[in-house]
Design a protein around this nucleic acid. Sequence first.
DNA 1: ACTAACGGGACGTCCCGTTTTT
DNA 2: AAAAACGGGACGTCCCGTTAGT
Lengths: 208, 208, 208, 208
Amino acid sequence: MKPMASACTNPAAGPKLGLRERKKIKTRQAIRHAAYRLFTERGYDATPVEQIAEAAEVSPSTVFRYFPTKEDIVLTDEYDPVLERELRGRPKAEPPLESVRHVIVGTLRHSMAQEREETALRMKLVMDVPAIRARMSESTATSARVLCSVLAERTGRPADDLELRVFAAAVLGSLQEAIFHWMEQGQTADLEETIDRTLAILGRGLTL
Amino acid sequence: MKPMASACTNPAAGPKLGLRERKKIKTRQAIRHAAYRLFTERGYDATPVEQIAEAAEVSPSTVFRYFPTKEDIVLTDEYDPVLERELRGRPKAEPPLESVRHVIVGTLRHSMAQEREETALRMKLVMDVPAIRARMSESTATSARVLCSVLAERTGRPADDLELRVFAAAVLGSLQEAIFHWMEQGQTADLEETIDRTLAILGRGLTL
Amino acid sequence: MKPMASACTNPAAGPKLGLRERKKIKTRQAIRHAAYRLFTERGYDATPVEQIAEAAEVSPSTVFRYFPTKEDIVLTDEYDPVLERELRGRPKAEPPLESVRHVIVGTLRHSMAQEREETALRMKLVMDVPAIRARMSESTATSARVLCSVLAERTGRPADDLELRVFAAAVLGSLQEAIFHWMEQGQTADLEETIDRTLAILGRGLTL
Amino acid sequence: MKPMASACTNPAAGPKLGLRERKKIKTRQAIRHAAYRLFTERGYDATPVEQIAEAAEVSPSTVFRYFPTKEDIVLTDEYDPVLERELRGRPKAEPPLESVRHVIVGTLRHSMAQEREETALRMKLVMDVPAIRARMSESTATSARVLCSVLAERTGRPADDLELRVFAAAVLGSLQEAIFHWMEQGQTADLEETIDRTLAILGRGLTL
DNA sequence: ACTAACGGGACGTCCCGTTTTT
DNA sequence: AAAAACGGGACGTCCCGTTAGT
């Protein structure tokens, strides 16, 4: 579940990390931030990696060392482990859709509070840049697998059960659509409420 | 709705087309066939447009005129108009999910009958080649818009109604997943039945 | 047999070639000449393709269109067909070693007369630049195959006959060594005589 | 003379080496083995040094310290000193070609007995991978120099005598060709006999 | 009109030398 | 002293728009 939020790679997180580790995290963020800024200013396709490197004050090689491709600058995040952990933390008896709802809403709320700017830009990029939107589907697929595996465990079904996979695909696909919808409305609506409505639609069965 | 089938661009289809038109369609198919063959032999990324052109006995420029990008060779099809027409042809009173089911199953049955080879390869490519799978999401998005617009008309809702969009996203996302599932099972199951089950899951409401 | 001479790609050769063809040959030569000049001035490794392109007044892309790799600028030539033709032109009854001698000496004489500068530089590059010397062995292998096939025909043996292949390998290997030897002597000796001696050594049987 | 055999760097060989020395040799072998395995699995060009390092459980820097370049992993061996020693060990009066025959056959027999697997893979790599085959010629050139110097001593000629160099070039070139021939025949023939025949051809004088 | 050739630029890979941590 | 990370630069591939020949 990385739809739209970046992982919380707070450099001050653990005091256990060596200087090296901390520096790496800082570099990673520097690159991402520089990229986001430039993407906003002049667009994704019009921003060569070289300029990102320059803005982040690293060499292009370094950018590629951190992010295998340019798209990964936007897409790589560390959310799936979070998703997995949070989901496992929900009570076993809770209806799956309800668990998902809690986790999503919670995560999103956190993102919007901590890194509103960046989260919003990320959403915008996913919406607007075809190359990124395209790559996004890979991310979603990964999250879908994670979701499946957690639900498989909880329900005792095999992880490649059709129903499980349909569940995951429908939920994640719809959530992305919900976010797009919300953004196209100018972000005027209440995002959480939009998500609630979306999942409710899925829960009640698709009729119109 | 192009998930996995190519449009029926049979050059002998309509006797109405002028010689020029028919030649164009033939070229288009020659390129596509050459591309498919090469993609199968050596992989998508390892096949430059130039080789496709060579195999199809046209110039790279020509490939380029027929398909704006390489990915479009795989993805461009002419299905959405078909989808739209078929959907409109369903009785107004029919539940939307049922209409979709009819259209999808019908289309797929036709594809598998007429162009089994190519349809299968196409599915395989969509599953296996990241770049294509990625672009696929664009296709799906387009189909989603078409689906929305038809349903909007039928239900009298606005085309950007949240519920409509969630409906479309959930249905199309799940269908793709269903097809992947079916392929991973070695295509042993009955595809139509798999689709029926998938849509039934969505219709009854997502519970596990 | 491209050991050290470049093919005679005289642009004025055939009056039959269209403007397009002639221009291509000119471009090819322009690139080669520019490269040779720069290699001489500042060394092979120290000359990036970009500078070659600049000097030849074409774009780097064009350089790569003409020569798949930088090494090919030095190594690609069109000599094997010449070798083959000339060899076939020799009387069937002539001892093979004698035929080879004639062809080599003749070709070399021609190169040295027509393009002395370039031939010499080429030899020097093959001697001095490891990467080129390395690639040279590929060239030699190709020539060896050509030589084998001609001799196979003449003698009625299969082309992969051990004796044939040993013949070709020994001859071509020794010739290269002879040329290196001649160059290291400061090109003071008579090259043709050096070659004669070399082949005589092979002909009489390796003893010391 | 490293045509195809790796030096016997058995870590348990000499009890004289200090612990440190032995560890170095082990690392060297670990890297080489890892590299060989990966080259076999996925090809030479497709295996970055970084992966080799990973597989050998050392850092890329370390690989780099042991082997100046990637190609050296395959090519660096310690055979020339062996060649030299063995050659010097042959009786002075023995015809040079006979001495060479003895040494080559002996060495090869040993390699095939002790490290058949690795020797075979090495031969295969030299045949199949252009980059390695190319670098091989460097090796051969070095061996040729060694061969020349030994023969120079024995015959009292200068080391850069044309005849000496032709001798060495012809012998080593032909030997490689013989090995290729033998491999292409599916390694069915007797390798030693093939070598005997090859040197006999050279000894009797090149006629067909 | 059609097609070949070119330009220009981005991408991503690799290599190897240098600087920084550990 | 060993390693990790970085810098810098070259290479070669690809794409797609433009120009120029046939």
